[in-house]
Design a binder for these strands. Structure first.
Lengths: 161, 161
DNA sequence: TAGAATTGTTAACATAGATTAATAGAGATG
DNA sequence: CATCTCTATTAATCTATGTTAACAATTCTA
């Protein structure tokens, strides 16, 4: 396996290490200071995804070839170790990283999307699962009650006329 | 590194692979069928943490020596590959697994806890970060507005008399 | 097939948290 | 020091979603 070089980086408070829309091939390890990642929704509202103090790693978990969803910036003057995401990883490791991506998206949806937005996203992302489990389970996954899901579905249906 | 044996397991719909309070040293890979993991809050309400159809892995991300938070059961007759969590992993990998644990807990809190419960958990889990960032950022992390956090803090203070 | 159990829908009402707006502190900058 | 900007607090209202309850539809099972 290729050894990926690690760079040391001093960043001043307020510096962006990554912005939305950029490629996200890097992983940041915080040696000193404090970083954070956050997204901005359609209404312009910020949602902090994670804080990374000393000893933590922070990165966008979306696949490296996809434009980044997250901003990463320094909340304090920080010392950061920057390494490239390793692409040629073992299949099992890749599954774990995929799952982190899923979890990241889930947190962001729970922070920033309404019940109906979460439902629409769910049926787009897991069209087969919708067929295979009772609706009350989908409601439970979305963090709403079965009654609320029922209403969401009706409103969605009425919208399509 | 020790090679961990993988067992093949046929499970009928409804079978539990793991229940809350058990140790959780296993990782399940779904070969056919559908598994899910879920937690139950104090009010007895279920919150589905994840669905795992064919090709997915599912496990409790909490440290293996800690009693499990999650139930894992089969929603359909399934064929599952069971392996032990590897304990002697590289430090970097351990960080990733730690982060998954954090994300898992975050999702569960967002699904099942109120604003004030999430805040109390936050100050317990990250007492230092509370000191280092403005409150509006903590609100953003918790998925509430700064105004709501202000109210939560006041109510908490009044509770202590 | 009948009856029982589970799941889904609808509606009335309750509530946590959002929104808006006004004010007060607290740091920054001239 | 005075002023400007940013952050925190409080209060009044609004809204999405929860709760409760009744009923309908579906699935199980005897």
């Amino acid at each position: 396996m290729k050894h990926s070089p690690i760079k040391r980086l001093k960043v001043k408070k307020g510096t962006f290490l990554q912005q939305r829309g950029e490629v996200n091939t890097k992983v940041y390890r915080v040696h000193a200071g404090l970083l954070r990642s956050y997204c901005v929704d359609e209404k312009g509202k910020e949602h902090i995804f994670m804080f990374a103090p000393e000893g933590w790693i922070i990165a966008d978990s979306t696949p490296a070839d996809v434009p980044s969803e997250l901003y990463i910036d320094a909340l304090e003057d920080s010392l950061v170790l920057v390494s490239e995401k390793v692409m040629d990883v073992k299949p099992d490791f890749k599954r774990i990283v995929n799952r982190m991506d899923t979890l990241q998206k889930r947190v962001i949806m729970l922070l920033s999307a309404s019940a109906s937005e979460r439902y629409e996203d769910f049926i787009k992302t897991y069209p087969d699962i919708v067929q295979r489990v009772p609706q009350k389970m989908i409601a439970s996954y979305l963090g709403i009650t079965p009654q609320a899901l029922s209403k969401v579905k009706r409103e969605l249906y009425e919208k399509d006329k």
